[in-house]
């Protein structure tokens, strides 16, 4: 067991996915506190260090690309522009993405690009992937 409680930011509007992500992390044995932002505008506010989460510096961010009020790519770009967050490990988790979106995301140095699997088993494996990223020195 890891003693540390990790702070995880999730940019996701689908509470079903949020639940599955929590389950995956728990199954992987990660202790965490999850902050969920449900739309692009709030995500941008966080990245630009404004509003409710202005001072929040998570250990890992999981971003969906398709969100209400703006896309995840814009949030990712803003994160990389922020002094506080420029080195924040970011994982993109999306149900489907065009090759263009994928290339753009990779330009902003994402730690992992995950296409959300439909099989439950695959879904739960994401927990192990995120754990590995969190354990990185």
């Amino acid at each position: 067991m890891i003693d540390k409680t990790f702070q995880i930011l999730v940019l996701e509007d689908n509470d079903g996915d949020v639940y599955l992500l929590k389950k995956a992390l728990t199954n992987a044995g990660v202790r965490f506190q999850m902050t969920v932002i449900e739309d692009g505008a709030s995500g941008l506010a966080f990245a630009r260090r404004r509003g409710e989460h202005a001072a929040f510096i998570p250990d890992l961010a999981v971003l969906d690309l398709n969100l209400p009020k703006g896309g995840g790519l814009a949030v990712l770009e803003a994160i990389r522009m922020s002094k506080d967050l420029e080195h924040l490990p970011v994982v993109i988790a999306t149900s489907s993405a065009t090759s263009g979106e994928r290339a753009a995301a990779e330009d902003f140095k994402v730690a992992q690009f995950i296409t959300k699997p439909s099989a439950l088993e695959e879904c739960l494996k994401i927990g192990a992937t995120l754990k590995a990223l969190l354990m990185k020195p």
Partner: peptide, 8 residues
């Protein structure tokens, strides 16, 4: 998106 939800 919804299909994944149904499956999962």
């Amino acid at each position: 998106e919804p299909l994944r939800m149904i499956t999962s």
